[in-house]
Design a protein around this nucleic acid. Structure first.
Lengths: 211, 211
DNA sequence: AACTGTGAAGTTTTTCACAGCC
DNA sequence: GGCTGTGAAAAACTTCACAGTT
C-alpha cells in the first residue's frame, strides 16, 4: 500500500503524528503488538475518532475488528514524518541551554543527530562541551552548506535570535527550532517551531484560581 | 475597569496571551508606549482581528483610533494570567535537563521562582548544582505542602514520570510542566503541559520534502 | 485617518454514528 | 463483539467588514 499524501493534510493533524508515534514506541517497548484507536486515545487524552480520522489521511493502516499493528503503524508514521533516516542538526548557542540540548541523549533514537555546536563568543569557541567542541559561528555557513544540513536549533539570547536565524536561512537551513523567547521572521519556505517553557507556565497559571 | 472573566474563555485564546505578553514586553524594552493589533499581529504572524478578538474577551483594553497602551495592556495580561506575583516552582530530576532548567535565568523576570530541586538518586542528593542543593525526593511532599507550592517541572526519565507525577499531585501540585517524553495521567483538576523538542522536530521534518 | 470592538460569515476541526469487516 | 474508516453533523475557531470612537 503506497503512502497517500496527495491532498494537503491539515497542519494540526501533522502535529499530532509525533505524539502517536511516541505513544506507539512506548507500547513497543512493552512488547505489545497490537493496539486500538481507543487505547491510544485513552493514553493521549484524544478521542478515538480523531485518531482514526488523522491516520486515515494517509491510507488504511488498521484492520477492522482488530486494531492497528504497532510495528507497521510505527513504520508508516516514520515514513510520513520522514524520519526513516537521521537528520543532521546544527545547534547555535553554547550557553547553558545550548550545552544541555547538544548533549541530550533523546534525539538520536528519534531521528536526529546533533552534528555541530556553534557560538559567536570567542571565549567559548574551542571549548569541549560534552561530546562537542564549540565551533565559531563564522564557520556555520560553510559547514551547513557543505553537509546540506537542513535543521537548526537556536539557543542564543533573544536579542541575537533574528540575526542568527537570518544567517541560518542564508546557509540553506529550512527548519528552525527556536528556544529563544522571541518571534523570528523567516521566508515562506522556512519552518519555525518555538519552545519557551515560560509560555506554558503562564498558560497554566491562568487556571490556578481558587474557586 | 474590572477584569471580565465571567464567560468561559477558550483555552486556545488563553494559550496565546503569553505570546502577546512576550511581544509586548519586548516592545517595552525598546521604550515603546503604544502599539496596535496590526503591529502585534505582524510580529507574531497572527491576524490583527484575532488579537483584537482575543483581548476583547477580557474587556476593552484598547482605544479606538489610537491602539493599545503597552504598559496598561501588559499589566492587564499579567492580571489575567495571574503572574502579578511570583509562583514557587519545584523541579524534580537533577540530571542534565533538570540542572539546566533550574539554573535558567529566564524564569524569574516572568513570574516564576525555582525554589527546589529534587532527585530520587542518593548519589545526587546533597550535591550543589548551580544555585541549588539537590534535595531527596522523599522530602518533596513535605516541602511542597508546607509552602503551598502549586507548580512543578518534571525532568525525570520517561519510565518514572507517571510515578513522580502521582506524588506531586498527592502533595497538592496543580500544574505540571512535563519534560519527559511521555503522556501522564492526572486528575481533572491538575493541568499538564508538555515540552518535547523531538515532537517539534518531527513535525517540521514532515514538510522537508523536495518537491 | 487610524484604530478598536464585534456581530455575522466563513472556514476548520472535532465528534457522531454507522456501514463494513474480522 | 469489537474495531476501522468515513460521510454527515456539530462545534470551535478565524476572518470579514464595518459602526463607532479618538
Amino acid at each position: 500500500m503506497p503512502l497517500k499524501l496527495s491532498d494537503r493534510i491539515p497542519d494540526i493533524v501533522i502535529g499530532r503524528l509525533p505524539l502517536y508515534l511516541r505513544a506507539l514506541t512506548r507500547l513497543q517497548q512493552k512488547d505489545r503488538d497490537i493496539t486500538s484507536s481507543h487505547e491510544l486515545g485513552r493514553r493521549l487524552g484524544i478521542s478515538s475518532a480523531q485518531i482514526r480520522k488523522d491516520l486515515s489521511h494517509f491510507g488504511g493502516f488498521g484492520k477492522q475488528g482488530t486494531g492497528y499493528q504497532i510495528e507497521f503503524l510505527v513504520d508508516k508514521l516514520r515514513q510520513v514524518l520522514q524520519i526513516t533516516q537521521q537528520w543532521q542538526v546544527a545547534v547555535v548557542g553554547a550557553g547553558n541551554l545550548g550545552s544541555a540540548i547538544s548533549n541530550y541523549a533523546g534525539f538520536t533514537e528519534r531521528g536526529f543527530h546533533i552534528s555541530w555546536l556553534f557560538d559567536a563568543d570567542p571565549t567559548k569557541v574551542g571549548k569541549q562541551i560534552g561530546d562537542f567542541k564549540v565551533l565559531p559561528l563564522d564557520d556555520m555557513e560553510q559547514m551547513v552548506k557543505d553537509n546540506n544540513c537542513q535543521i537548526a536549533m537556536l539557543a542564543v539570547p533573544a536579542e541575537y535570535a533574528q540575526e542568527v536565524a537570518n544567517k541560518l536561512v542564508e546557509a540553506g537551513v529550512r527548519a528552525i527550532l527556536n528556544y529563544a523567547p522571541i518571534n523570528i521572521n523567516v521566508p515562506e519556505h522556512v519552518m519555525v517551531q518555538y519552545i519557551d517553557p515560560v509560555v506554558h507556565m503562564q498558560h497554566m497559571t491562568y487556571y490556578l484560581r481558587d474557586e
